[in-house]
Amino acid sequence: MQTINLGKAEGLPPVDWTVVAAKLDAGSAPAADAANARTTWLCTINHDGSPHVTAVGAVWVDGAFWFQTGAGTRKGRNVARDPRCSVAVSIRDADVVIEGDATRVTDPAVVARIAKVWADSGWPAQPDETGTGITAPFNAPSQGAPPWNVYRIEPRSATVVLATEPGGLTRFRF
């Protein structure tokens, strides 16, 4: 992994990726009184090259972000055409942006495991009858009817901005 301290000119130390990864693993949310909110944002690329940003119910599992969407949604169409995307989230004391490629996951065992992660966090997702997608009694109306496709975003790079003293701004390339 390459570490680039973007705050070096201001005398800031580099961010420790292992601390950030541990907070992502733990599902860390900002403090209740923090200025940053616990929304996870997905940015995909529209057909004309412009960005499409939308809130998603992504989860961090096994060192990657996972999200689900209907095949006919804009984000679904975008990642089918161009898998490059990014996810932005606030964690305790930091803001994190992960860049990578979205890969559709169809392995029934993996889909079932990720559906269970969502179910354990309060959204009652489960594999559909084929095992290659997920279903639930409810989802955002814009997702269309189930089943929904599951995607994994393997991090290619991450940028982390610390929100506490001494601060820090670091990019990681994996």
Rank of each mutant, 00 (worst) to 15 (best):
L6P: 00
L6C: 05
K8D: 12
P13M: 02
P14V: 00
L24M: 11
P30T: 04
A31P: 00
A35Y: 11
A35G: 15
R38S: 14
R38V: 09
L42Q: 03
C43F: 12
C43N: 12
N46K: 08
N46I: 02
H52G: 08
V53H: 02
A55H: 07
G57R: 01
V59H: 10
V61M: 13
V61A: 13
G63K: 08
A64F: 12
G70C: 01
A71Y: 06
T73L: 09
R74F: 10
K75V: 09
N78P: 01
N78H: 08
V79A: 03
D82F: 01
S90K: 05
S90G: 01
D93E: 03
V96N: 02
V97W: 14
T103H: 14
V110Q: 15
V111C: 02
A112I: 02
A115H: 04
W118T: 04
S121I: 08
P127N: 05
P127W: 08
G133R: 13
T135H: 05
P137W: 00
P141Y: 12
P147Q: 05
W148K: 01
N149P: 03
N149R: 15
I153C: 09
E154C: 06
S157D: 00
V161G: 11
V161A: 14
G168M: 01
R173T: 11
